[in-house]
Design a protein around this nucleic acid. Structure first.
Lengths: 145, 145
DNA sequence: TCTTTTTCATACCGATTCAATAGGAATATG
DNA sequence: CATATTCCTATTGAATCGGTATGAAAAAGA
């Protein structure tokens, strides 16, 4: 019942992009340094985001990646589902999931509620929210220091 | 981000026990037949529940298992956490979990909310609720047939 | 045109977890 | 003593996790 590194790193990666200077593409090396994740692993993860059209890529020197849309258009759910696959806690409450025990089984009600609770969280937080939280956190840090 | 068979089977197992004739111990074979889970796998799962004192066991012929407490005293969370381990979506929001990036990291807020949402569901459903739902479902089935 | 910097694609790998199965020991009943 | 049950531990095949490694392709600049 864990979110894997792929999903977690993808979220940090997208937030990093969202908070980067949007006037030029950000290259993987920078993100790798800031987020302390290997370049090679980041490449794999961003490839998924790129194929899905979540980011725009530019090759060659001065190349890199940038967000395709505004931060408020990305929900955490979109990013996690893309990289993690379904977030449903069991297969039988997935879209198109079928269970042979459906008629008798009542534990499925638990899974449905769990699924709704999970979706309720991830589908209502956007990258814009994360940016906002990050800015608040940075301010507090400045204040302390 | 899935609940494994261990947790799912444990829940069905406990519900099965809760709905069984409590005047005598229920043996694994019966549960295996009703739930369509192998005897050997069930043995392993119930061993966990037994060690934790969730069920009482009696050996020998006419032996078997029975619930130790009333159904309303078992939450789904207790059963799942025992068999699955922590339900926290990432290690850093677990009890005693520490993260070196805590100061800077803002995605942790996502995980906290997710964690709260998950706990909010599983800690507020008891075996008694499941029994109730099952009885309702059975009634509806009878009605249709 | 050559070098450099970047993305892009794919293969590989060790460790761990999952989902069981298997074999047999211990214990109680009758 | 035979039988029915729980109890204990080992094994296994497959999948997943969390990356590394290698190198091709493309673009920019000298």
């Amino acid at each position: 019942m864990k979110i894997s590194t792929k999903g977690r790193y993808a979220l940090r990666l997208m937030l990093d992009l969202a908070m980067s200077d949007s006037s030029r593409p950000t290259h993987i090396k920078e993100i790798s340094a800031r987020q302390d994740i290997s370049v090679k692993y980041l490449e794999q993860i961003i490839a998924i985001l790129n194929k899905a059209g979540f980011v725009r890529s530019t090759r060659g020197p001065q190349g890199g990646y940038s967000l395709r849309w505004d931060p408020e258009e990305y929900t955490v759910g979109m990013i996690l589902r893309l990289t993690e696959g379904s977030l449903a806690p069991v297969a039988c409450v997935e879209d198109g999931g079928i269970c042979p025990r459906d008629e008798q089984c009542v534990t499925v009600e638990v899974w449905k509620r769990l699924n709704d609770a999970i979706n309720g969280v991830v589908d209502h937080i956007t990258l814009a929210d994360l940016i906002h939280w990050q800015e608040e956190k940075n301010q507090n840090l400045d204040y302390i220091i």
